[in-house]
């Protein structure tokens, strides 16, 4: 509760402002500052959003798994809410990544979708955490569901390396931009790196803000249920 009270003023007032400024700066970078990619042309500019969607999605899922593990280990409704918020925000960015990908792939690869390892991985991740939300939505006011959902999040993240290895063995055309050297498919212009970093900051801030909003939403919902129960008791 103490931590919550210390974070709240910052998260309520400063974070939205920072996220808005950073997002505007990122948009300016992407549309005005970074140069056109030599082969792909302006289509490549979606990269700055696409990559950062995945960053935020994975961040959300790993936060969810981490706080789920803490919840199973030590209990505590705040870990549970953080896990739930992490999956909700994570799946939002995961969906955005899945939408921005095909928009880029259609003109560049000539197809909306292929079963490349990273794409396969993305879809499986999406399904695992969509099921998490289905599980959560199934039952209201059931303390058991929290523990089931936590087990699913932990097992889901344990599964990630196995999925990665098996889909890589299975099929292998997605460009590796970040890890590739500059002259072999990496980012050639230093302005591109700047653009990517600004967008990274913007997405991270947006992520944190959304995570906070969802966390607060879930906390207020629990509070409301508690008050409703109390009212029922007193009228009885």
């Amino acid at each position: 509760m103490n931590v919550h009270r210390r974070i709240a003023p910052f998260a309520d007032r400063v974070l939205p402002l920072l996220a808005t400024v950073a997002m505007l700066a990122a948009l300016a970078c992407i549309f005005l500052y970074v140069p056109n990619e030599r082969v792909q042309g302006p289509v490549q500019r979606i990269f700055y959003f696409h990559v950062n969607c995945w960053w935020a999605a994975y961040l959300g899922f790993f936060i969810a798994a981490g706080s789920s593990a803490l919840f199973l280990w030590r209990g505590g409704a705040s870990y549970d809410r953080l896990a739930h918020a992490g999956v909700e925000v994570g799946i939002l960015f995961c969906t955005m990544g899945l939408v921005t990908g095909p928009i880029w792939a259609r003109p560049i690869w000539g197809t909306w979708w292929t079963w490349d390892p990273r794409l396969t991985m993305a879809v499986i991740l999406w399904t695992i955490f969509a099921v998490y939300l289905v599980l959560r939505s199934g039952a209201r006011d059931e303390p058991e569901i929290s523990r089931y959902a936590a087990v699913l999040a932990v097992i889901g993240v344990l599964d990630i390396p196995l999925i990665m290895i098996s889909v890589r063995l299975w099929r292998g055309i997605h460009p590796s931009v970040i890890s590739a050297p500059a002259n072999k498919g990496g980012l050639e212009d230093p302005r591109m790196v700047t653009g990517l970093l600004v967008a990274l900051v913007a997405f991270s801030l947006l992520f944190l803000w959304l995570l906070w909003l969802r966390y607060e939403g879930l906390r207020l919902r629990d509070e409301l249920h508690r008050l409703e129960d109390r009212m029922d008791e007193s009228t009885r």
Binding site: L135, Y148, L152
Partner: peptide, 29 residues
């Protein structure tokens, strides 16, 4: 888990199938 949910017949495949993907790929190959 699923045995104690209301929609148990549906929830078991939903929970297990996405997590089984690595096993399906590797067992089939």
């Amino acid at each position: 888990i699923s045995v104690r949910l209301r929609a148990r017949e549906m929830m078991l495949p939903l929970l297990v199938l996405p997590l089984l993907v690595p096993l399906v790929i590797c067992a089939v190959e």
